[in-house]
């Protein structure tokens, strides 16, 4: 990772990465690959947002798919029934999902570990049952077909290439926001809550506040992912927003490396690609996938890109009279 230490080289690398991402649809014309890329993008939104809750604030949530689903249904219903513009619908999705995050988090975030896990899991099940049973609005198990594509200033976004660019923009936006949050006082406060709540309280941090912030922000981004997904696939049904999806997202976060944004990205990429790559052995692929999860946890529990690789001074200010970046080599944690 030596090349990443120099900020200038880092910028060049990011630049090359961006150009590659932008050029991807021209290099690869197979639309199946584009579809896989878009799926990865959606999962990056979901995984990085869940990482804020589980990786940074240390709260185990097994109901992330519920917020994803709420966002999808809110977005789809607004676009279908009220002809709301996609981008407004997306904001509405974020707001409504975030509100549900607040609603669930407020009474339950003082519960410890496993208890919170089951409550979020139960919430996920309840939300799914509402999708299935509230047929007047959601059409129940039949789902909602014909969700329109977005349009910007009269230009219709349609076709996989356009959706590909849209998800790239959303991913970059999400990564920007997550990065800013994590490298701020709020993000640091979340981490203290994860490490030791009593110590955090002893320095004036109210744990529930930061758990709630993490929860609401994560829910809002899951909502955005849901709205995007609804518009991309054009059809949603309750079967997408199930417990298994929550588990897959959590697995991405944990396998990638808790408390690490690059980790969540890697987790999303790998867990989307592995089942696709194992497709040739279709019958055995999920079997192998399950076994891989176990082995990974035995042999590399910190994930592919654990938090131990995070940059040290997360406040991103060099101490020592405000000198900047003189010894960025020290910024990398030595393991």
């Amino acid at each position: 990772m030596k090349i990443l230490r120099n900020p200038k080289q880092k910028k060049v690398l990011y630049g090359i990465g961006l150009i590659l991402l932008a050029a991807f649809p021209f290099l690869i014309t197979n639309s199946y690959y584009l579809h896989v890329c878009i799926s990865i993008g959606v999962y990056i939104l979901l995984a990085t947002s869940l990482n804020l809750v589980t990786g940074f604030a240390g709260q185990l949530s097994l109901g992330h798919a519920a917020f994803y689903g709420i966002g999808a249904y809110v977005g789809a219903l607004l676009m279908l029934n009220f002809d709301v513009n996609f981008f407004l619908a997306m904001i509405a999705s974020a707001v409504v999902s975030g509100l549900f995050g607040l609603l669930l988090g407020l009474p339950t975030l003082r519960l410890r570990g496993d208890y919170l896990a089951i409550v979020t899991l139960g919430f996920g099940e309840i939300v799914r049952l509402v999708f299935v049973n509230w047929a007047e609005v959601t059409r129940g198990p039949l789902g909602l077909p014909g969700i329109p594509s977005p349009s910007i200033f009269g230009f219709q976004i349609s076709g996989r290439t356009a959706f590909y660019y849209l998800i790239i923009v959303l991913v970059l936006l999400t990564l920007f926001v997550m990065n800013r949050i994590v490298n701020s006082g709020v993000g640091m406060a979340m981490q203290t809550v994860k490490i030791d709540e009593i110590a955090a309280e002893s320095i004036g941090i109210y744990p529930i506040k930061y758990k709630l912030i993490a929860f609401v922000v994560a829910a809002a981004f899951a909502g955005i992912a849901g709205c995007y997904y609804a518009s991309y696939i054009a059809y949603i049904s309750p079967t997408t927003f199930v417990y298994n999806t929550s588990v897959t997202i959590l697995a991405m976060v944990v396998l990638g490396g808790l408390g690490s944004i690059p980790g969540s990205i890697i987790g999303a990429v790998i867990l989307t690609l592995v089942p696709e790559l194992l497709r040739f052995m279709s019958d055995y692929r999920m079997l192998i996938f399950g076994a891989l999860m176990v082995f990974m946890m035995i042999f590399r529990p910190e994930g592919f890109w654990g938090a131990s690789k995070r940059v040290k001074n997360i406040y991103k200010i060099k101490a020592g009279g405000g000198k900047n970046g003189s010894d960025s080599g020290d910024n990398q944690r030595h393991n």
């Binding site: 944990v254 999920m286 999860m293 529990p301």
Partner: peptide, 19 residues
Amino acid sequence: ADKLAVLISALGVSIFLQN
């Protein structure tokens, strides 16, 4: 090790057994 590691491992077992 970490509780979460055990949880993920358990989820892996669950997927394995189902399949």
